[in-house]
Design a protein around this nucleic acid. Structure first.
Length: 492
RNA sequence: GGCCCCUUGGUCAAGAGGUUAAGACAUCGCCCUUUCACGGCGGCGACACGAGUUCGAUUCUCGUAGGGGUCACCA
């Protein structure tokens, strides 16, 4: 088999969404796993939908994910240019070639005429194909229209009988009646090709061997085959991927307000986790291992693992996977990735103390699922939140407000008199001894202290870990605050 | 509506004519434990339906139902 070449062919009409990225990923992986070439081609043949900056989003995303292309804009290979708007002469030439070969024809129908063909207004569903009016124009009529400078499009001349079959690697053989095929437009009146035409021409010219795309193209694939055949070109291997859904009925899409790739990144999902997760939506690995870096996928990816039914994007599983990725990071990497969030949660003053930041990072790395969880969870370090004394009551810890008050009153002098090193381990030993000396369970001291230090029902660390972070002065202050709160409550 | 495609637990999914129908997320319970999280153990939970082929179908065929796609001078 000739060398494998795949391409990612986005159109710069918006931002990179999850489905796009997954298709791109698969295309990239198919190239890599076969030692082939991955091409990036920009399909900007619709000047009306062009969105400024969309191309940068594509480049930015590829850069971020580490999906590198071998040929494309800025990386010229032998098949350039890689931007379709710079190739318009090519399409025109091939469209005319097809006319010459008798597989396409000039059509001078006006938009108005085409509109009227639609059968007016209330034509529920049943829309009609083009009536092929211009297909039967005489050579003279065509020449006259051309000479008169009438605007025209070039349409594909579909066979009127028989069937067309194509083979898709994931869906198998699919056959359709040629009767159902529309004489689709190949070259628009502005001289630019339609997607369907440019795609075929470029895929051939660029030597693409595996055409990977969403399965919404399944129904236009027979037309592609007819085009390849009309030119006498080799038909590529088709790989249609099922969509990624938001729920049972709707696709995941930016239009529906669903998060794009960049949105997820901004929310604190890790690029590698997102990539890993979406690789699994529509593809399953050989074994039970679910964690794959890009580099590993470049070895492990298999076409056999592709599935044909849609997959619902499950943010819960992504969250879980993201948490796993976070925990697997080195402390240094995590510190870097979480920097902005740590800063936000701690505030300038605490953030200035690198030792504190590192300790907080270590605690939080073990418990956050997405990076944006961080600020909320550590804000209490900056400032003790207002809290209700009800949180001192904990059945399992065997504490209530009365016991908590007593524990805090025991702890306060202990803390003030403490002469050891101010680190969690030693403080823990000390507090446990204090509990034993007063015939209390460890938890009856530790829970109230943790609560007083954090003012929260849950905190990213236990009593002594928080004490260490807070330092002695602040610990004393918070215990005193707890004591007066509890007193006020119990006296009421 | 025509045509095309899809259908294993709530979700992602493996499997293949004969299995106790994997695994993961979620969920529930227990354990660990200075809260939470992590971790460990365990539970609940699925082959859309109906025929046919077969000694035997979740797996093959055909229908039915449900869902999706497509029917542009958009990609």
């Amino acid at each position: 088999m000739s060398q494998v070449r795949t391409r990612f062919a986005p159109s710069p009409t918006g931002y990179m969404h999850i489905g796009n990225l997954r298709t791109c990923l698969y295309e990239y992986l198919i190239a890599r796993v076969n030692g082939g070439t991955f091409v990036l081609r920009i399909e900007d043949t619709d000047q009306e939908r062009y969105v400024e900056g969309a191309m940068d989003a594509v480049f930015g995303t590829l850069e971020l994910t580490g999906i590198g292309y071998d040929e494309g804009p800025g990386k010229e290979g032998d098949c350039g240019p890689y931007i379709q708007s710079q190739r318009r002469e090519i399409y025109k030439k091939y469209a005319e070639e097809l006319v010459r070969r008798g597989h396409a024809y000039y059509c001078f129908c006006t938009k108005e005429r085409l509109e009227s063909l639609k059968g007016g207004d209330e034509n529920l569903g049943a829309s009609l194909n083009y009536d092929r009016h211009c297909r039967y124009l005489t050579q003279e009529e065509i020449a006259a229209n051309l000479a008169a400078g009438k605007p025209y499009v070039i349409r594909q001349m579909m066979p009127t009988e028989g069937t067309t079959t194509f083979t898709d690697l994931v869906y198998g053989d699919i056959t359709v009646d040629n009767k159902t095929l529309d004489d689709q437009v190949l070259l628009k009146s502005d001289g630019l090709p339609t997607y369907n035409f440019a795609n075929v021409v470029d895929d051939h010219l660029m030597g693409i061997t595996h055409v990977v795309r969403g399965n919404e193209y399944l129904s236009s694939t027979p037309k592609y085959n007819l085009l390849y055949e009309a030119f006498g070109w080799e038909i590529p291997t088709y790989i249609h991927c099922p969509p990624i859904m938001k729920d049972q009925h709707q696709k995941l899409s930016k239009r529906n307000g669903d998060a794009s790739f960049l949105d997820l990144v901004n929310k604190g999902y890790l690029v590698d986790a997102i990539l890993n997760y979406i690789a699994l939506l529509g593809w399953s690995p050989r074994g039970n291992e679910e964690f794959f870096t890009l580099k590993e996928l470049e070895k492990e990816f298999t076409l056999e693992g592709l599935s044909k039914s849609p997959a619902i994007f499950d943010i819960e599983k992504l969250k879980w996977m993201n948490g796993e990725y976070i925990r697997r990071m080195s402390p240094e990497d995590f510190r870097k990735a979480a920097d902005k969030w740590l800063h936000e949660g701690l505030g300038d003053a605490l953030y200035a103390d690198e030792a504190v930041v590192n300790k907080v990072a270590a605690l939080v790395q073990q418990r956050c699922v997405i990076l944006s969880d961080i600020p909320e969870r550590i804000r209490f370090l900056k400032e003790l939140p207002e809290y209700d004394t009800a949180i001192y009551c904990h059945k399992k810890m065997k504490t209530d407000e009365t016991i908590s008050l007593r524990s805090l009153e025991l702890t306060l002098p202990f803390v003030k008199a403490y002469t050891g090193e101010w680190i969690s381990g030693d403080l823990y030993t000390g507090l446990c001894e204090l509990a034993a000396a007063n015939e209390l369970k460890n938890s009856q001291i530790l829970w109230p202290v943790r609560t007083a230090c954090s003012g929260m029902e849950v905190s990213p660390g236990g009593a002594t870990e928080l004490m260490e972070l807070l330092g002695r002065d602040e610990t004393v202050r918070r215990i005193e605050a707890g004591i007066s709160l509890l007193k006020a409550k119990l006296e009421a």
